[in-house]
Design a protein around this nucleic acid. Structure first.
Lengths: 330, 330
DNA sequence: CTGAAAGCGCTTACAG
DNA sequence: CTGAAAGCGCTTACAG
């Protein structure tokens, strides 16, 4: 059972292919009577345009690539925040009548495939997610000439336009809150040093402390729960007198909570903990986590808009405000 | 700057388009000298085949659709298990040299778009994720004639071939473990009644209890943490004497843990808790959660294989074994 | 082993 | 407002 073509519809409706095409594509300049006849033929035959043929002539596909370039062993296997972002972007793209092609290359070969895919114009544009500094893919994609927008400030040498949450400001609010509630020794658990979200949050933390007489004290994490627990243990060893910790994301904050409990410290009595992201789980840690909420949907929407706007001129970055959510861990 | 076409490469290499096409597609029957010349021309021009043109003639796209049909308000915004599945499927598809088109329609209009997209042969096949009983999309996709495979036993009237973990067996193992460790009043927190994973796990729970003199006692959840907490509270009210609970997924088990703590019950001393999925967070609950691990990667691989095998004959379902992971909550 | 030619299914100036 | 025709960039029998 072959699929009906424009040709078949035209024959059935007794008009030319051009007319059918016009009706199908909603051109205004078609006689209402003819339009009705064509629509009926389309209906009767169950006609659906062949997208390859259409793309071939229009040079557009209606698809947008969502590229997540993540080392396989890494991070996101369990980060709900990442999923929220994918959902939000997907939702916005759907609203704009675009399809989402999800690409999560985990090997150099996979990256090469993504590059070919994009260069082959399988997609009309690309949104980059969770970039790492050393990743060569963003630059490669930029070179294809396909519009590229980054979700999150890029750290690589490639400099696509981007949208992001105000990571610096959010971190600043978190640390200021800690200070305001009387904490004296505030440590930080950082994200991976090649990701802007981690970098920017650390910068916010440092900014606030540098304005006081407090020393900053940071331990390295990689956004996983495990690394948060390990970093917390390390911090307790480095400075047993600390009374607060700012973790660069909620997953690490959850790990820190775990480590504190194991070390016999009470939260918030002995040590206050603040996270970042406000994932659902933040309301379910023990105690519920004070954290910084990001405008996930708004950032996603901004990125989609920026991309669809063409990305031709070097668009100004869009940076959206965050919000401190105070719960029981501080 | 227009992209070079086959034509341009042919001109540059001094051969016909047909020959270039053969070289590009790796046909064996090409004179090595000519092949080299063509390859050089491809290289020099930076030629990349236009995928729309290729699809138009080959009738294939190299893309597979991953369809997640989930009411917007629902569940998965925070379920790490879902993300694991997406990653695993994506990984397997990548290994098979296919691209992943992620479709998460959240409105009827979105569903209609997905249907058109698939019917328009934008993809060579579809993998269905997390189906709900009432969802009309699976049946619609099946009707398009495009190969469809379900990840997870389908519950709708549509009956695509499927791959799944052994949910019944896993639940059975969990409840038997509870029995073996001396628990007498074992309650259950169920998943949504229109999803097979929840249904099958409940069935496993009932099977085991029906072989004993114990009554079964279930409260309804929907796979979210919140619903797990609410269901637990309900169960404690219904039967204050319960000493164990089997939750149909880890997120609900985490919610139950929370509710138990709030009710002043100690885990596992007063009440034992078992979950299902073995998400990363299961090792970080307080106490760490006993749960049933699913072979995520293997199920994903099986689904991809089944799909690529063509799905022509009504393939036998593939159901893979689960494993009980005992931690401190039992 | 290679090339000329047909054809995949559409859109879009261009005439009328 | 409508149609005939060209053309999008490829692949693939079919000859040679």
């Amino acid at each position: 059972m072959k699929r009906p073509t424009l040709e078949a519809v035209a024959a059935r409706a007794g008009v030319s292919r051009a007319t059918v095409s016009r009706v199908v594509n909603g051109s205004a300049t078609v006689n209402p009577r003819i339009r009705t006849a064509v629509l009926r033929a389309v209906e009767e035959l169950g006609y659906i345009p062949n997208s390859a043929a259409r793309s071939l002539v229009t040079q557009r596909t209606g698809s947008i690539g969502l590229v997540v370039s993540e080392p396989p062993a890494r991070v996101f296997s369990d980060d709900p925040f990442f999923l929220s972002v994918v959902r939000a972007v997907s939702q916005e793209l759907e609203a704009a009548d675009k399809q989402v092609v999800l690409m999560m290359p985990s090997t150099p070969a996979g990256q090469a495939r993504v590059e070919r895919y994009v260069a082959g114009r399988h997609v009309d544009g690309v949104i980059l997610l969770s970039q790492h500094g050393a990743d060569p893919l963003p630059a490669a994609l930029l070179r294809t000439g396909v519009p590229v927008v980054s979700h999150g400030r890029p750290v690589s040498t490639a400099r696509p336009p981007y949208c992001d949450a105000d990571n610096v400001g959010g971190a600043r609010a978190a640390v200021e809150h800690l200070l305001a509630t009387g904490r004296r020794r505030i440590a930080a658990i950082t994200g991976p040093p090649d990701m802007s979200a981690g970098l920017d949050r650390l910068a916010g933390y440092r900014e606030v402390l540098s304005g006081t007489d407090r020393r900053s004290l940071a331990a390295l994490g990689d956004f996983t729960r495990e690394s948060g627990a390990a970093a917390m243990a390390q911090l307790l060893e480095d400075d047993p007198g600390l009374d607060a910790v700012f973790a660069a994301n909620d997953l690490m904050a959850a790990g820190a909570l775990h480590a504190l409990r194991k070390a016999g410290r009470r939260v918030p009595d002995d040590v206050a903990v603040v996270g970042f992201d406000d994932i659902d789980a933040a309301r379910y840690t023990d105690p519920p986590l004070t954290t910084v909420r990001q405008p996930v949907v708004e950032v996603a929407r901004a990125a989609v808009r920026m991309l669809l706007a063409g990305g031709e001129r070097p668009a100004e970055p869009v940076v959206l405000p965050t919000e401190l959510i105070v719960r029981d861990s501080t």
